[in-house]
Amino acid sequence: MQKLKLGLCLLVVALFLTGCVPNKTDVLEKLVSKEENKLHMQIFSDSPDWDFEVNKVHNSEPTLLKYIQQATIHTEDDKLKWLKILGLEEKRQVILIFDTEKMVYHTNDPEQLREFAKTLDK
């Protein structure tokens, strides 16, 4: 009887832990834009200087301002696992841009946002 109780307890713990690991759908749901025809910029960073560079490029490009209505900066280490789930390297200093369904662009170079902006009004 003790073995049965122990086995049942271990099964419950295993099921609980399995449910705590986010999958790609869970991560996308947190990152995608909630507004049709608008983009959401997700910035994974641990450097205020780099965040400033991203912001400077974003604010200097009218097309980016038109389409990217929201930007979120992720500084927490536990959010890096989201990058792995999305098939990206788990490292800081990355910009991800999402529409309402999927990631549409990513870069490690804030200046590359200018090239992305050129594709938005086509």
Results as ranks from 00 to 15, higher is better:
Cys9Pro: 01
Glu29Leu: 11
Thr72Phe: 02
Pro22Lys: 04
Val57Asn: 01
Thr75Leu: 01
Met103His: 08
Leu6Thr: 15
Asn37Gln: 12
Met103Gln: 12
Lys24Gln: 08
Ala14Pro: 00
Lys81Gln: 15
Ile73Glu: 01
Val57Gln: 02
Tyr105Gln: 13
Lys3Ala: 06
His74Glu: 00
Gln93Ala: 08
Asp78Ile: 05
Ser47Arg: 04
Ile95Asp: 00
Glu36Asn: 09
Arg114Tyr: 12
Pro62Arg: 03
Thr63Gly: 11
Asn59Ala: 10
Leu11Glu: 12
Leu6Tyr: 11
His74Leu: 01
Leu4Met: 10
Leu86Gln: 02
Phe44Ala: 01
Asp46Pro: 00
Leu17Thr: 14
Trp50Val: 05
Leu6Gly: 06
Ser47His: 07
Lys102Arg: 15
Leu65Glu: 14
Met1Asn: 12
Arg114Ser: 13
Asp46Asn: 13
Met1Cys: 15
Glu36Tyr: 14
Ile85Asp: 11
Val32Asp: 03
Gln2His: 11
Leu6Met: 14
Leu120Cys: 14
Gln42Met: 10
Leu120Glu: 09
Ser47Asp: 12
Ile68Phe: 02
Glu101Cys: 05
Val54Ser: 00
Arg92Met: 03
Leu17Val: 13
Met103Glu: 05
Glu29Tyr: 07
Arg114Asp: 07
Thr18Asn: 13
Gly19Glu: 09
Trp50Cys: 05
Glu76Leu: 00
Phe98Met: 04
Tyr67Val: 04
Gln2Thr: 15
Asp77Arg: 08
Ala71Glu: 11
Cys9Thr: 13
Leu6Ile: 15
Lys102Gln: 13
Glu53Pro: 02
Lys34Phe: 08
Asn108Lys: 10
Leu120His: 12
Gly19Met: 08
Leu28Asp: 09
Thr72Ile: 07
Ile73Gln: 03
Pro48Glu: 15
Lys79Glu: 04
Ile97Ser: 01
Leu113Pro: 03
His58Leu: 15
Ser33Cys: 07
Lys84Val: 11
Glu29Gln: 10
Asp77Met: 13
Val32Trp: 09
Asn23Thr: 06
Asp49Tyr: 08
Ile85Val: 07
Ile68Arg: 02
Leu96Cys: 12
Asn37Ala: 07
Leu4Trp: 12
Glu53Ile: 09
Ser47Phe: 05
Trp50His: 03
Val21Phe: 12
Leu17Cys: 06
Thr72Trp: 02
Cys9Arg: 05
Leu39Arg: 01
Gln69Ser: 14
Asp99Gly: 06
Asp77Tyr: 04
His40Tyr: 11
Leu17His: 04
Val12Leu: 11
Leu10Ile: 11
Glu111Phe: 03
Gln69Ile: 13
Leu10Phe: 10
Ile85His: 07
Pro110Arg: 06
Val13His: 03
Ala117Gln: 02
Tyr67Asn: 05
Thr63Tyr: 08
Ser47Val: 09
Phe98Cys: 03
Asn108Pro: 12
Val32Met: 06
Leu96Asn: 00
Gln2Ala: 12
Met103Ser: 10
Lys3Pro: 02
Val54Glu: 02
Arg114Lys: 11
Lys30Tyr: 04
Phe16Cys: 08
Tyr105Thr: 02
Asp51Arg: 02
His40Met: 06
Leu80Thr: 07
His58Gly: 05
Leu39Gln: 00
Lys34Ile: 06
His106Ser: 07
Thr75Ser: 01
Asp51Lys: 04
Gln42Cys: 10
Leu83Val: 00
Gly7Ser: 15
Phe44Asp: 01
Leu86Met: 08
Met41Gln: 08
Lys122Trp: 03
Ala71Val: 10
